[in-house]
Design a protein around this nucleic acid. Structure first.
Length: 407
DNA sequence: GCGATCAGGT
DNA sequence: CACACCTGATCGC
């Protein structure tokens, strides 16, 4: 395809149509509320999340929602000849985080698939549907280029399905019936895990910000540390679960689908790096509070391999340049012509909203808070740094109280 | 004064 | 050693 036609997860001026695979921050660099370079296509779920994230998005008319599994025709033009060109696109569930999709394009240039970030588990019924859509759409068609999420495209990356990992998390929680549990999460991507936990443990309130109702809490990953766990343990016996410890998993799990034993980090010495005089030194710190579980929203190597073998693309291009091994996918597949923060003495609940809360009510509430915030900001004459800090927190949906404005 | 972006951290 | 996302500083309109 010519340059100047479409962009996927890239937000520079110069394309005629822009595609967003999912809402993680590293895929939206350059995308701002003042977006104006062209129509922005995404899934229904991403569109909803998008509007809560970019609440001042002023070009609603540029947002285009794509249903999954349907072909859409885009009338574009060739930048070189000026002639009209039609491109067809289909969005397919990528099983990465809520709303994440892959995009399948076809046109005069041939056929290409951009996976975005994706996980290709075969056991999940949702994955079955995506698989069906993909195969149906590609029936009798040669896939010319596969733009592939090659994050873990190295045979040494071998970890279990998210359901297995979720089971491990539940086992850890069950084996600590009298402990508080804190689970480190990012703002988007561990919802299924939290839902699984609440379902298996029959937690009464599925999601709540009232921390007195539950011993299991989700906290932001950036506030999850050894120090945090030690501080929490001064108050109540608490274990922390990190559903993401993948780099440490390299070569630990010997095969796909293996039953995974107790978390390897528990009771095992963890290492921490510290900078001394500009030189990296390793400080060994033993911790007894933290479990890591290999819960990944990216495909492991065997899943990537299966995916590539299924699609038989003519060419493959990795989309993650800083992939661990920094390995081009084709090396492996031949040239295939083929919430809250924890503070001293106090913590707020998970930053997970009730599923019944609508986008409209979130936006309306946010609007009210921002208005009130504006009044308080001018009344208290706070510094720019404090203001930036407050606005960032507002954007994340964290509750702001009057005391935050105290001089 | 403000949003956007970078560097450096977890 | 990944990923996603935080903070504070700086840039540029």
């Amino acid at each position: 395809m010519e340059r100047g036609m479409i962009s996927v997860d890239r937000w520079a001026q110069g394309s005629q149509a822009y595609f967003l695979t999912h809402l993680h921050a590293d895929h939206t660099v350059g995308l701002t509320p003042t977006w104006k370079w062209g129509p922005l296509f995404c899934s229904q779920v991403t569109a909803k999340l998008f509007l809560t994230k970019f609440d001042q998005f002023n070009k609603l008319s540029l947002l285009r929602i794509l249903d999954l599994g349907r072909w859409y025709s885009l009338p574009l033009f060739s930048p070189s000849s000026g002639q009209p060109v039609t491109i067809q696109v289909m969005a397919i569930d990528a099983h990465h985080c809520p709303g994440a999709v892959m995009y399948l394009f076809r046109g005069e240039f041939g056929c290409m698939l951009y996976t975005g970030d994706f996980r290709w588990e075969t056991v999940d019924p949702r994955a079955e549907i995506a698989r069906g859509m993909l195969l149906e759409a590609l029936k009798g068609v040669k896939l010319d280029i596969l733009y592939l999420d090659n994050t873990y495209c190295d045979p040494s990356y071998c970890f279990p399905s998210r359901e297995d990992a979720s089971r491990q998390v539940v086992d850890i929680i069950s084996s600590h019936p009298n402990h508080d549990i804190v689970i480190s999460i990012d703002s988007l991507g561990k919802e299924d895990l939290l839902f699984y936990i609440s379902k298996k443990l029959k937690t009464k309130d599925i999601f709540t910000t009232n921390t007195s109702l539950t011993r299991i809490r989700a906290i932001p990953r950036y506030s999850f540390s050894m120090e945090t766990l030690q501080a929490l343990n001064l108050m109540r016996p608490t274990v922390g679960i990190m559903p993401s410890g993948l780099p440490w998993m390299k070569k630990i799990f010997s095969g796909p689908g293996n039953v995974v034993g107790p978390s390897p980090s528990h009771g095992v010495t963890c290492s921490k790096t510290r900078k001394q005089n500009g030189v990296l030194a390793i400080t060994e710190i033993c911790n007894e509070y933290i479990y890591t579980v290999p819960y990944s929203d990216h495909s492991c190597f065997s899943e990537i391999k299966k995916f590539v073998e299924l699609l038989q693309p003519t060419d493959i291009r990795g989309t993650v340049s800083s992939s661990p091994s920094n390995v081009e996918p084709r090396n492996f597949f031949g040239n295939q012509k083929p919430f809250g923060e924890v503070r001293a003495g106090k913590h707020e609940g998970p930053q997970v909203r009730s599923p019944i809360e609508t986008v409209e009510s979130i936006l309306a509430r946010r609007e009210r808070i921002i208005k009130r915030c504006g009044r308080l900001i001018s009344r208290h004459f706070i510094s720019r740094l404090d203001r930036v800090r407050l606005l960032r927190r507002l954007r994340r949906g964290i509750k702001i109280t009057d005391s935050e404005f105290s001089p």
